Each structure stands twice: as C-alpha cells, then as structure tokens.
Simulated assay, not measured.
Amino acid sequence: MTNEEDFEQLDPADQDEEWVSKSQVKREMNALQDLGKKLVALNKDQLAKVPLDETLREAIDECRRLKKGEAIRRQLQYIGRLMRLADSDAISQTLDSFEAGKQAHDAHFHRLERWRDRLINGTPSDLTDYVAAFPGADVQHLRQLVRNAQKEAQQQKPPASARKLFKYLRELAEEPG
C-alpha cells in the first residue's frame, strides 16, 4: 500500500482539518502569553472589567505577587496555557478599548501642552485664539499666568508658573460646556 492509498483510506472528516505547523502553534502560544503579560500589567480596576474565569484571575494575581524572574516566567507560561481555554478575542477587544482610551487621553494632554507652549512662546493673537476656543476662560487670570511663565522662562527658573498655566488650561478643558 502506498502513502497515497493510506491517505484515501482516512476518514473524510480528518482530511478536511487544517494542518497547522509547529511554528504556527508556538506563535499562537506566544501571542496568548503576551496577552497574559498585558493582563498582569493592568491595574485592578481595568482587570475587573476584563472577562476572565476565576482560575485565570487567580493566576494573574499570583503572578503579580511573585518577585523572582524565573518564577514570574513560569507563571506567565501557566497563564498562557490557561489563555487557551479563555475567550482571547473578548479579552483582546477589552484591552484594545483600554489602549484606545489611553491614546485619546494622551492626545488631549498633548493638545493642552501645545496650547500652553503657544501661549508662553507665541504672540498675543495666540491668547485671542485660545479665548475664542475656550470662551469660559478668565482672560485676566490667563494673561497673568502667561506673563509669569514667560518671566520664569527668561530668568531660566523652574517652570512652576508654566505648570500652573497647564493646570488652568486642563481645568478649562474639563469644564462642561
């Protein structure tokens, strides 16, 4: 009997199964282990929002408790094995939503930093532009903060007034309106 005849004698359902290489299996296991690392890095509030079974949650808590590198590596491998049984798609989607929220927060923070820098280093028209964008701003207070920050920058002092200006800009941006 040849190999071709052996193949034909197999059950047709077995022939339809997709063959996966050992390398592909390892890549998938490493991806699950990396997902487990991300779970371990989350804070408690974020982790509470992730759909996990109790065994996986306990394994993550145990990994957080460990201090030695080798023990952490073994625990992460265990978490990777538990991830095979978990709904990794739902977990990934939850982690992606956390990342999207963080990116939006960072972008908002950077916009405020750019406004602060424009107000300190720019022209008086930048102040007018800011007041037009945020009509709830106290113009007199804003001018004072900008003047103090500019004076500190000229004297090469620590940027305490620039921090106060940024804090004020952040408060204005967070006001409902």
Rank of each mutant, 00 (worst) to 15 (best):
A160E: 08
W19P: 02
R74Q: 15
L39W: 14
S125F: 03
G36E: 13
E99F: 11
T123L: 04
K37Y: 04
G69M: 07
Q9D: 04
P176L: 02
D126Q: 09
R147W: 14
L169W: 15
V40S: 12
R111G: 00
L32G: 07
M29V: 10
F109R: 03
T94V: 10
D106I: 00
R84F: 01
R143W: 07
L39S: 06
R147Y: 10
K49H: 04
L32T: 10
L35M: 13
D96T: 01
M83K: 11
H110D: 01
G136P: 02
I91T: 05
W115A: 01
K44R: 06
L169E: 06
A162L: 07
E174V: 04
V40F: 15
M83G: 12
E4W: 08
F109L: 04
R143P: 13
E175V: 15
V50K: 13
K44A: 11
R111M: 00
P176K: 11
G177T: 07
Q77C: 09
K26G: 10
V40Y: 15
I79T: 13
G36V: 07
Y168R: 09
H108V: 02
A59T: 15
D89E: 11
R64M: 01
K157T: 04
L10M: 03
K38Y: 05
F134C: 01
I120A: 00
D45S: 03
T2Y: 03
K151T: 00
G122F: 02
D45M: 04
L145K: 12
L66H: 06
V146Y: 06
E70R: 07
K38Q: 11
A31N: 12
K102I: 14
H141E: 11
Q140P: 08
G101Y: 03
E18F: 00
D16W: 04
F166T: 08
C63M: 02
G69I: 11
L10C: 02
L66S: 10
P12A: 00
Y168V: 05
K167Y: 10
R27G: 14
A153C: 14
V40L: 07
A107G: 07
K26V: 12
D96R: 04
G177D: 07
S23D: 11
R170N: 09
S92K: 09
P158D: 08
L10H: 02
D14T: 09
L119W: 03
L82Y: 12
Q154G: 10
I60K: 14
T128C: 06
R27M: 10
E5P: 07
G80R: 15
E28Y: 04
K157N: 13
F166Q: 10
W115G: 00
K37A: 08
A59V: 10
Q156E: 14
A48R: 09
D16C: 00
A100N: 08
V40Q: 05
R81E: 15
D11L: 00
N3I: 04
S21L: 02
R84Q: 02
Q33S: 11
L82A: 08
R170K: 14
E174D: 15
A48I: 08
L172S: 13
D87P: 08
Q93T: 08
L32S: 12
S161L: 11
E99V: 09
R116N: 01
Q93R: 08
F98Y: 02
V131H: 00
H141P: 06
E152G: 09
F98T: 00
Q33F: 09
R64N: 06
V40C: 15
K67M: 01
T94N: 03
L127R: 07
Q24G: 03
